[in-house]
Nucleic acid binder design. Structure first.
Lengths: 114, 114
DNA sequence: CAGTATCCAAAGGGATACTG
DNA sequence: CAGTATCCCTTTGGATACTG
């Protein structure tokens, strides 16, 4: 086995983190909707992400918030409403999405050829 | 809620596929090792992917092969050995890896700041 | 409206042992 | 050597009901 340039443990972890961040069943879908509408309430997200249950939606939103990709704002209305919006920082994931989309489209074609 | 350009169902699926493809706990690690060494045997992969069990390694390799990212070659030695190598097509995932790495590194810094 | 609580089924993955 | 077979635990996520 020949030896080329090694990739560091740090880099492996970084990639794993990035993958994990987008791996939830609905996470990408939520993120996409938020990019699209800019600001949405819990119920809006539930309706757009057809099939998601409140428990799961809540969990995924918390994780996205923990990762600083979205913000959660409580509005003093009656009854109280909550708005979710993508952060400025979330723009940093755009290149990842683009790369995933590009490869994903190619790959679907490729696999169909089999 | 304002309306911008919609993303198609097809695109959403493509992205989901791409994410799923890399989501296995060891898949990226295996792919990385194969890029690095070009060709490895089952046992080599097991040793380099510290902690993986043969059952899981076998499964992940099959999935990568199904997705045309690696090839599996049986060598007529005694005892029989098997070589795994990345395909030419596997180069197409490189931009995805790069984007994931780039974001992942930024993200790890960002999260530490919290 | 925006969640939380509970229960449950399926999938992912580890440990260990075995086989051609 | 290159896997398979079995068992089992943890995680993920769906269904349903309930609360401030």
């Amino acid at each position: 086995m020949k030896t080329k340039n090694e990739i560091s443990k740090e880099k492996i972890l970084a990639i794993k983190d990035a993958i994990e961040l987008l791996s939830g069943k609905w996470k990408f879908c939520i993120l996409h909707n938020l990019y699209h509408y800019q600001t949405m309430r819990f119920k809006d997200l539930q309706e757009k992400s057809v099939g998601i249950t409140p428990k799961v939606l809540s969990k995924e939103l918390q994780e996205l918030e923990d990762n600083l990709l979205i913000t959660r704002t409580v509005n003093s209305t009656k009854p109280v409403t909550v708005s979710y919006a993508p952060t400025k920082y979330a723009e940093e994931v755009q290149p990842v999405i683009d790369a995933l989309l590009d490869f994903g489209l190619k790959h679907r074609k490729k696999i169909k050829e089999k």
